[in-house]
């Protein structure tokens, strides 16, 4: 960067400026990993989407009901097995 020399016409100044802008604002290539990582992030639901799912009470009720039912089935099977094993002994 040099000190200003009054040897250029205003048009030349603008041309130099445009040339330097073209040299400074060049398209960049983001790393491939970054593009892949971004792609994966886009396929993932965003935080706001996840929050939205939890405001859907019907869905929350179904998920909760499903989890509780599954646990009850597991407990019943475990109790039955325990009872059967106890009787044999």
């Amino acid at each position: 960067m040099a000190k200003r020399k009054q040897t250029h016409t205003p048009e030349e100044d603008i041309q130099f400026l445009e040339a330097h802008l073209a040299g400074t604002l060049r398209p960049i290539s983001p790393p491939k990993e970054l593009v892949q990582r971004l792609g994966a992030r886009i396929r993932m639901p965003s935080r706001s989407e996840i929050t939205l799912r939890f405001t859907d009470w019907r869905r929350v009720f179904l998920i909760f009901g499903g989890v509780v039912s599954g646990m009850l089935v597991l407990v019943t099977v475990a109790r039955a097995l325990y009872y059967l094993a106890g009787r044999k002994m």
């Binding site: 960067m1 000190k3 200003r4 400026l17 330097h20």
Partner: peptide, 17 residues
């Protein structure tokens, strides 16, 4: 023009390539 004026204000000159 604004950029050129800013360069002038800072007393800087872009050299030709």
């Amino acid at each position: 023009l604004a950029l050129r004026d800013q360069l002038e204000d800072q007393n800087l000159n872009l050299e030709g390539e």
